[in-house]
């Protein structure tokens, strides 16, 4: 009996192991990449390397844009595209460490720094939209229609005195968090002072989606990109209160990581995103579902 027992358990484990391995090797054989075919004499150290890794900011992931574009790119170039989502800070860190081949993020100053430090090849903007300051419909702080800077000034003043007024910050070093800091700076505040000014200021440390859900639960104000907000709007009772101001511009760009082993395929992704066909699709993405596009294409423009 004990033999049967040991045999059965080993069999189950081996089977599961074997069942996983062919799944991997199928993917390898079925997706030869141009990167691999250009150097036929060279044997890649690991077959899995025929995968292109792109790190994307959460807002491009949570809106479903990458889920929509990924299969198109894979079909067109016969490559497995791995989409990793993280805040801009983490995506840039992955790029610096060489763990991804391409990044798509939204924080101009940090992107320019990334390229200047030699980690990225070139910053290529491909789409933009706007940030919104959103909050409960009752608007206890009364910021509706203000400029972004005035709204933030009002929020900190009311937040410190009225218990109903709360602001939820991403607090995760993301592009959106960076924008929030920029607005505080533009309104004349030191970010550290704001952060430590009291219980009205809440840091979630998570992506845009979870932050919106939390702001909704707390009936709080928050800063969100319009794309993620529209994608989540159905589940939220929050409304846009401030949507005008130059500082709210949100530009997404794609950068090839300098240390990538597949520069050709990585460039294909940049060309793909900035091609007329895909730019057109990006410009129409979300119209069916939300009645308005989530992004405005901007390839070739300096933004």
């Amino acid at each position: 009996m004990k033999r049967i027992l040991i045999f059965l358990i080993s069999a189950v484990m081996l089977l599961s192991l074997v069942s996983m391995l062919p799944a991997c090797s199928d993917e390898e054989t079925s997706s030869p990449t141009p990167a691999a075919t250009t150097s036929p004499g060279e044997v890649p150290p690991l077959p899995k390397t025929s995968r292109l890794k792109v790190a994307t900011t959460t807002s491009l992931y949570d809106t479903g844009l990458w889920g929509y574009l990924e299969p198109m790119f894979e079909d067109k170039y016969g490559v497995e595209l791995d989409v990793l989502y993280a805040g801009t800070g983490k995506a840039l860190e992955w790029g610096i460490r060489g763990d991804v081949d391409v990044i798509t993020v939204h924080s101009r100053s940090r992107e320019e720094q990334f390229v200047a430090d030699g980690y990225g090849v070139e910053r290529v903007p491909f789409a933009y939209n706007y940030f919104l300051i959103i909050g409960p419909e009752a608007d206890p702080a009364g910021i509706s229609g203000m400029s972004p800077e005035d709204a933030f000034t009002q929020l900190i003043a009311e937040g410190e005195s009225i218990p109903d007024v709360k602001f939820v910050s991403r607090g995760d070093d993301s592009g959106t968090h960076g924008k929030e800091k920029a607005i505080w700076a533009s309104a004349g505040y030191e970010y550290e002072d704001v952060r430590t000014s009291g219980g009205w200021y809440v840091e979630t440390g998570s992506g845009m989606g979870p932050t919106l859900v939390m702001a909704n639960e707390m009936r709080a104000y928050t800063l969100s990109d319009i794309g993620t907000f529209l994608a989540y709007q159905g589940d939220l009772e929050l409304v846009p209160l401030v949507d005008e101001g130059d500082i709210l511009l949100n530009v997404y760009s794609v950068i090839v990581v300098a240390s990538t082993k597949y520069p050709d395929m990585a460039n294909n992704l940049v060309e793909f995103l900035t091609s007329d066909e895909i730019q057109d699709l990006i410009g129409r993405y979300g119209v069916d579902e939300f009645g308005r596009p989530l992004f405005t294409p901007c390839a070739g423009q300096d933004m």
Binding site: M20, C24, P45, L46, K48, T49, K53, D82, L84, I96, R97, G98, D99, S259, K261
Partner: peptide
């Protein structure tokens, strides 16, 4: 296993392995 790490050359970060 990160590219910048000691076994980064294997390039197996972000894989099932």
């Amino acid at each position: 296993f990160s590219r910048a790490g000691p076994l980064g050359g294997l390039g197996i970060l972000f894989t099932p392995q």
